[in-house]
Design a protein around this nucleic acid. Structure first.
Length: 862
RNA sequence: GCUGAUGUGGCGGAAUGGCAGACGCACAGGACUUAAAAUCCUGAGAGUUUUAUCGCUCGUGUGGGUUCAAGUCCCACCAUCAGCACCA
């Protein structure tokens, strides 16, 4: 095989004849297939990219052959840290290196035989793209969904920038691994929390992997419960301290505090609440501390904040805390309970205050034990053993022992005790009743909380989309008018990060005239998180060449949602959540008529190194796709990636695998050449004995081959639709084996053989496009194989005259017999009985099970 | 710790509750060849009986269960991987 020539020849041919070109004027049968775009960092394309892209590309080619109008665009997520860091490393300006890398990667992708619709490509660092990212920002601002907040943010001291919660892994920066710290900064946030409920609901209607949906559900973290007010009972010492504080410091709310509001998902346990806990960072904490406890509390708060900076996550699970000196009244039973501060309560979730119910919460239990706080059981297990069928008595007695000294904390459901009028209630029911009761006195209300936090989008870096906001001393925050977009990223400047925004140092950029009042003002010095850029790109792809609006609404409505979206699982709680959020915002804004971006999502697995480890330069197990394509051609690389792995799981790389795929391709080529020769002989009338019927088949061999052909097509299509392409290839291989076999028969029907061979080439085309196109043209075709349609399976041909079924006695196989396909169950039974009469030996048949086309099972007395 | 996924030959991997191991690799044998490679064909889960066939037994991480029938469903456990990590 002259791979290089073949690949070049057909790449040129396809491009020239627009074989894979999407037709924007024929949207009735469109199919939108897209893979997550890649960032053009310095590492170029790796084998994982090819795995990610090749399989959908094959699927796209299959769809094209089935006559669908496939849109398969590709672009580059070009802003952001990887590109910028690469620039620092090489000393090249990020713009230059990014554009170079994109150009190189585009070449690599083309060389890999991936036929994207390059006319619709997007580069997020291109002003005609980020203009619309800025427009999107303003849209969110207009709708009150982009807000500035002074809040503690995750700060990476090494990257010198803010990170979103989703970008923090184990308390470290997901990119460089540095320990993150918390800084109080004024930042832009997108109010994704406003959409928490809808993001949750929307999951039910999309065809995504369950694990991804689950991951998003957990990330959103809905929790249904109640807010409960605990009135304070302040000793004099507390009042003195509080007044001092209010006088001395300019406190946010300059008033006395009379209650603490906690959030709980277990209002049913409120009678067991024996203390309250405030998060150390909660501003209330100091205010309600008594003079005697002040020093201790202050020390604790300081150490907690320090701990937070180092690694609160990795500390031991041992609970610590300090008594504040203040008390509260449990509104359920009016008991006076102490208030503590402890770092196991998070300031950032709900009200930053918790009621401690040691008997029914693991953490509260530990805390109460350590500080000798009362533990009151208010729920007992339902007496379930009565219903439970306990077979051995010993177990039963153990259970009743357990009941006597029930191990606390008990966190399961049960029946209320020690809870006054609620005693005896089922605890789920009690949740409702207790809230209702407290609600009457205005001491509680139903409340839903989410773990999801607002999305922080400000980044103190150069290489990103500038935030289109102007800060004016007299007008405050002023959005850049649409006509002034894009706010261009300045070309030349010192872009090195040093903890403040590089753009802030560029006076030319920073100083502007306020569009509202005309006085001097300053630009926002930050750039946007790159996930903003990638949160809407699928909407723009079809409109990539439209410059006067974000996208053509009409077109986008026809094209979206995306039919197939393919990419890594690692974006489950990041990009994939952000895209859904932005889509919903644009839906609400009336810009689109759908509110989920991706109907179907598929994650590809990961290709590991030959040693079964993640590929990494340091381990030296990286597979370079360029070398492989050079040596074996892109078809063989693709075929191996498809055949050698389960797409969803991935797996370790194996060098032999690709050689074998190459050999298989040669085997196909040899066969096609043989058939082409046979056909020539036929045309030259050299061959006399050959039967050239194509209608009215068959002798037995023809029939067999025809069955396999139809079987192959049928299974192939099933597999392709299920994205189990490796099995589709297996069926093709079987078909090839059958063709080889048929070819050896003396009186083979050459026309029939030719027809089958053409089918084979068509089946192969999505997986080895160049080879298939080359072989196709050996039959003097004047059109591309991809425009030749797709073989059709004749379902009737799948029914054989006879079929082998298994005969079992007591579920053990005793014989395999052939029966006519159309036999009734009774006929099958009769035939089978006769066939194994020697084994049945007239014993009584208790039961007969017939599974048509598969087996018959006689249950007999032994 | 919690949640989820996975566990099948020497290897990659197949199997709507119905013949486990498709397909491929590696392996063995044969044909072709002076020979090798390549190619084409054949064989093959493990064990066991037999001159050989015919058989038989055991086999999908472990132990139970449901079923006429379990890799597949249920329960418990083990191992590996991934995610979450005090969210009250």
């Amino acid at each position: 095989m002259d791979l290089k020539n073949i690949e070049e020849k057909w790449n040129t041919y396809w491009e020239k004849n627009k074989v894979f070109k999407f037709d924007i004027n024929k949207l009735e049968n469109k199919k939108y297939i897209m893979e997550m775009f890649s960032y053009p960092s310095g590492s170029r394309l790796h084998i994982g990219h090819l795995f990610n892209f090749s399989i959908p590309d094959s699927f796209a080619k299959y769809c094209i052959m089935k006559g669908e109008n496939v849109f398969q665009p590709m672009g580059f997520d070009a802003f952001g840290l990887p590109a910028e860091n690469f620039a620092f490393k090489t000393g090249i300006h990020p713009r230059e290196s990014t554009y170079n890398n994109m150009e190189y990667m585009e070449k690599q992708l083309k060389k890999a035989g991936l036929n994207f619709d390059w006319e619709y490509t997007l580069r997020t660092c291109n002003p005609n793209y980020y203009k619309w990212t800025q427009w999107l920002f303003l849209k969110l601002y207009e709708r009150g969904l982009a807000v500035q907040k002074h809040a503690p943010v995750n700060w990476c001291p090494s990257c010198n920038t803010v990170l979103a919660n989703e970008q923090v892994v184990d308390g470290c920066c997901e990119r460089c691994g540095s320990q993150i710290i918390h800084k109080n900064l004024t930042q832009w946030f997108f109010k994704i929390t406003d959409y928490a409920e809808r993001l949750l609901e929307g999951l039910d209607k999309i065809d995504w992997p369950e694990k991804t949906k689950l991951s998003q559900r957990n990330w959103i973290g809905k929790s249904v419960g109640a807010e409960v007010d605990f009135l304070l009972e302040k000793p004099v010492e507390v009042l003195v301290n509080e007044k001092q504080i209010l006088n001395n410091i300019n406190f946010n709310q300059k008033k006395l505090i009379d209650k603490i509001t906690v959030f709980t998902s277990r209002p049913d346990t409120i009678f067991g609440a024996t203390y309250l806990v405030l998060a150390p960072e909660n501003p209330i904490t100091l205010q309600i501390t008594s003079l005697t406890q002040k020093q201790e509390v202050e020390n604790y708060i300081n150490s907690a904040i320090k701990k937070d900076e180092i690694a609160r996550q990795s500390t031991t699970l041992e609970k610590t805390g300090v008594f504040t000196g203040c008390y509260a009244i449990n509104p359920a039973n009016n008991k006076k309970i102490p208030i503590y501060t402890a770092d196991y309560v998070l300031a950032t979730y709900a009200t930053g205050a918790v009621m401690g119910v040691p008997a029914h919460d693991e953490r509260d239990f530990q805390f109460a034990q350590k500080y000798n706080l009362p533990i009151i059981q208010v729920i007992k297990p339902l007496e379930f053993y009565k219903q439970e069928s306990c077979k051995d008595l010993e177990k039963k007695s153990n259970l009743s022992n357990n009941e006597k000294n029930l191990k606390l904390p008990y966190v399961e459901d049960g029946e209320l005790i020690n809870s006054c009028q609620f005693d005896g209630l089922n605890n789920q029911l009690a949740k409702e009743k207790i809230i209702q009761d407290l609600e009457k006195n205005g001491k509680a209300r139903k409340k839903i909380n989410y773990k999801l936090r607002d999305w922080s989008v400000s980044r103190q870096r150069y290489w990103g989309c500038p935030i289109p906001i102007i800060h004016c001393d007299s007008c405050g925050i002023v959005p850049v008018p649409e006509k002034d977009l894009p706010v261009l990223l300045p070309e030349t400047m010192d872009y090195h990060p040093d903890g403040t925004s590089p753009l802030a140092k560029n006076q030319e950029y920073m100083n502007v005239i306020c569009p509202k009042c005309g006085k001097p003002a300053r630009r926002d010095p930050d750039t946007l998180d790159t996930f903003v850029c990638s949160s809407w790109y699928e909407l723009r792809y079809p409109s990539a060449n439209i410059n006067d609006k974000i996208f053509d609404t009409n077109l986008t409505n026809k094209m979206c949602p995306v039919d197939y979206y393919i990419g890594g699982m690692e974006h489950a709680n990041g990009h994939l959540l952000y895209s859904r959020f932005i889509t919903k915002v644009l839906f609400d804004a009336g810009l689109i008529n759908f509110d989920e971006p991706f109907s179907k999502l598929i994650h590809q697995g990961m290709i590991l190194g030959p040693d079964g480890q993640k590929m990494s330069k340091s381990k030296g197990n990286v597979i370079n796709p360029d070398e492989l394509i050079e040596k074996f051609g892109s078809d063989a690389v693709r075929l191996y990636l498809i055949f050698g792995f389960n797409y969803v799981d991935g797996g370790p790389w194996n060098d032999d695998g690709i050689k074998n795929c190459y050999k298989f391709m040669e085997r196909v080529e040899r066969f096609v050449d043989k058939v082409v020769d046979l056909r020539l002989d036929l045309n030259n009338e050299k061959s006399v004995a050959n039967n050239t019927r194509i209608e009215n088949l068959y002798d037995v061999n023809e029939k067999n081959l025809d069955y396999i052909r139809n079987y192959t097509i049928n299974e192939y299509e099933k597999n392709v639709k299920a994205f189990t392409f490796n099995s589709a290839i297996a069926r093709i291989m079987e078909f090839v084996n059958a063709l080889y076999k048929y070819e050896t028969f003396e009186n083979k029907n050459v026309e029939f053989l030719v027809a089958n061979t053409k089918d084979l080439i068509q089946l192969l085309a999505p997986f080895t496009p160049h080879l298939a196109e080359e072989l196709w043209h050996k039959f003097n075709q004047d059109n591309s194989v991809f425009k030749s349609g797709f073989p059709k399976c004749d379902i009737n041909k799948l029914i054989k005259d006879e079929i082998e079924i298994v005969v079992q006695i007591n579920s053990k196989i005793v014989k395999r017999i052939n029966i006519p396909t159309k036999s009734t169950n009774q006929e099958i039974e009769n035939i089978a009985k006769k066939e194994i009469s020697n084994k049945l030996m007239n014993r009584e048949i208790l039961k007969t099970i017939v599974i048509p086309n598969r087996l018959i099972n006689f249950i007999i007395k032994i």
